[in-house]
Structure formats: C-alpha cells, structure tokens
Simulated assay, not measured.
Amino acid sequence: MAGQRLAAEWVRAWCEQTDAALTELVHSFQARHGFPPGRNVIARATEESHRATDALVELTPIPSDLTTVYWVVEEVSLPDVDSGFFLHPSSMVASHFREYGSIHLDGEEPAVVFASDGGGHLFALAGSGRVWRSTTASWFGQFDLAAAGLQELLEGLAQRITAQL
C-alpha cells in the first residue's frame, strides 16, 4: 500500500500465515524433489535483535517499515523457495552498511540493502519505501524496481511459497 506505513500487526499475521505454508512446503519437499530441504525459517525478533535494530537505526536512518519488520522478525532464510530469499538480520545490514554504505539510485533517496536471493541479487529499501533489486550480484551495479513497498514484497514471497505446494 503506497503511502501507508507497515503495521506490526500485519507483519505478525504475515509470519503466522507464511509459517503455516512453509511448514507444509518443508514436509512435502523431499517427496517432490528427491532430496531434503534446507533450513527454511522465519525467525522472530529477540531482545538481542531489537538491540541490533536500535543500533542500525542509530547508524543510518532506515525506512520505518524496515524497522517495523525487524521489530517482529529477526531474519528470514528460505533457500528452497524459488531461487531462495534471505532477509538479513539487522546486525548484518549494519555491518554491510558500514562496509559499503547506501545504494544510490537516480531520482530516489539513498537505499539500504536488507535482503538477497539465492543468486546473490540484492534487495534495497529506499527512503520512499520502494524496494529495489540488483540486476547482478553486485552492490555497485544497476537496481530495478522490485516492489512498491515491503508489504508487496512480503506478500509476493508468501505467494511464491504457496505456489510451490
């Protein structure tokens, strides 16, 4: 929803619904693919991850929707969904920010890298709330628009899990 802030209640509901679909996917994975699944998890936030999120906010003004997600979710690791999807823990985002800085996009506020896929493509969230995906496995290449916001990105991820059932 463009222009609307992401609500923690929505993120919690997304976690519950997505966890249910993910459980079903993992249970049927080996029968469908002939090998066991990897570690597919949506890890909930902890006191330690809250401290890491607070440190990230002090380091860089991350978009509020990402702070909301990190207040509910520590990380997402889905190696068996499509080519994989990984929402990095806020401590990793801070480490990468210190090393690489923000992503600069034409006509967009600086963006912070917060996720990647199994092919090494990066996902960055701009101050506008829009999500961008690198066209190559590089911090310094081109980024294309991937979603209008985090909610759209997470909804699409849930749909990809359901589509694999």
Rank of each mutant, 00 (worst) to 15 (best):
Y70H: 13
F86Q: 07
R32E: 12
P63E: 15
Y100K: 10
T46L: 01
V112A: 12
A7F: 13
T53M: 10
F140L: 11
H121K: 13
P63I: 13
L22C: 07
R44Y: 08
R51Q: 11
A115P: 05
S91A: 14
S102P: 05
F123E: 02
V112C: 11
A126I: 06
M1S: 14
L6T: 06
L153C: 09
D54A: 10
L150M: 13
S128W: 07
P36Q: 08
A94I: 07
G84S: 15
T18Q: 06
V11I: 05
G34V: 11
F35H: 12
T162Y: 07
G3Y: 03
E109Q: 15
H33F: 08
E16N: 14
Y100L: 06
F114H: 08
T18M: 05
F143T: 06
T135R: 10
Y70G: 06
L122N: 01
L153D: 04
M92F: 11
G34R: 13
F86V: 04
V81Q: 05
Q159V: 13
W139Q: 04
S83A: 11
S95W: 02
H27Q: 15
G156N: 00
G84P: 15
L78M: 12
E99R: 10
A31S: 15
Y100R: 10
E24H: 10
G118I: 03
H27N: 14
S64H: 12
L122H: 00
A21F: 10
V81Y: 04
E24K: 10
L78C: 13
Q159D: 15
M1A: 13
Q4V: 13
E47H: 05
L145N: 10
C15R: 15
R133I: 14
P36W: 03
S102G: 09
W14H: 07
G101I: 00
